[in-house]
């Protein structure tokens, strides 16, 4: 019950892998004077010289050079899975906050309405938009297209997307989420996770089989069991610990971190020394798995 108070200490970064020398640049650094390359994100051309405009790592893919910054707002691409929060209900569309530079758009024509997919959108649907999604609701969706000014257009036209029910949202930086084939995982420890490309991670209790294919807009308000709750809280703290030490997040790293944290109480995981210990163990396991 007593509060844990302490004096601050200078944090030293925890890392095991020495890694290869990375090509790191800062704004204003000239990357190459060779005009044969195409310029990608994070670069600009200044008097025929390709110059970096952000601080980060240079990535070369064939003739394309781009610089990936360490931390940035979400730059969505078609096919990315995102978790977002509804901020506004407008006529025939919802505005969704997805940690990107402009709010994303979810058109009424891009959602599954009850009654099947092929129903035409009637005037009645426009008026009852609030019954489907309200301000503050969370959804999981996929990026359908990108507008010319950079805003994203989302869709939830598949049963695995839609309104999210009871669970915990963790907001992290998009650069920490690893791109994978699937972003929906049912972890063996008893909870499920959606790793949104935009840095929003959703943790929830694995639904039992009958509810699996419900999709759409029904959300259960039944209390979640205590054991599931503990698993979800532990996962949340592990995610924050991994993010604080800038470890890339994907299902394996999260799972290893969970396993390494089992010896500690859930609320102790966020103490600095415990975080360091758990992250070191996780990194060790990940290295062993690769090597």
């Amino acid at each position: 019950m007593a509060a844990d108070m302490r004096l601050p200490t200078i944090r030293k970064p925890v890392s095991l892998c020495s890694g290869e020398r990375k090509d790191l640049v800062v704004p204003g650094d000239v990357i190459t004077s060779d005009t044969g390359f195409m310029r990608g994100h994070g670069t600009y051309v200044d008097e025929d010289k390709l110059t970096a405009s952000v601080a980060g790592e240079v990535q070369r893919v064939d003739k394309l050079i781009c610089v990936r910054p360490l931390k940035t707002r979400f730059n969505g691409e078609v096919g990315d899975v995102v978790v977002g929060r509804i901020t506004e209900v407008q006529q025939k569309r919802w505005k969704v906050e997805t940690n990107s530079r402009l709010d994303s758009v979810l058109l009424l024509s891009s959602v599954n309405l009850p009654g099947g997919e092929l129903r035409r959108r009637s005037a009645e649907d426009e008026l009852t938009m609030r019954q489907y999604l309200l301000e503050g609701d969370l959804i999981s969706a996929e990026v359908q297209s990108v507008f010319s000014d950079g805003a994203l257009s989302l869709h939830t036209r598949s049963l695995k997307y839609g309104k999210l029910g009871q669970g915990v949202l963790v907001q992290l930086s998009p650069s920490l989420i690893k791109r994978q084939k699937t972003h929906f995982h049912n972890l063996p420890c008893g909870a499920s996770i959606i790793l949104g490309n935009n840095g929003f991670v959703w943790l929830y209790a694995t639904p039992s089989n009958e509810e699996e294919e419900a999709g759409g807009f029904y959300t259960s308000l039944e209390p979640v069991s205590l054991s599931d709750r503990e698993v979800i809280s532990r996962l949340r703290n592990c995610l924050l610990a991994l993010a604080a030490h800038k470890v890339l997040l994907y299902d394996t790293s999260v799972l290893y971190c969970y396993e390494s944290s089992l010896q500690h109480q859930v609320k102790d995981i966020l103490k600095p020394e415990v975080m360091e210990e758990i992250v070191m163990l996780t990194q060790q396991k990940l290295l062993e798995q690769e090597g």
Binding site: P13, S15, L24, H245, K246
Partner: peptide
């Protein structure tokens, strides 16, 4: 700062 952080993301 870049060195420190990019080393961690490895």
């Amino acid at each position: 700062h870049l060195e420190e952080v990019s080393m961690l993301t490895g």
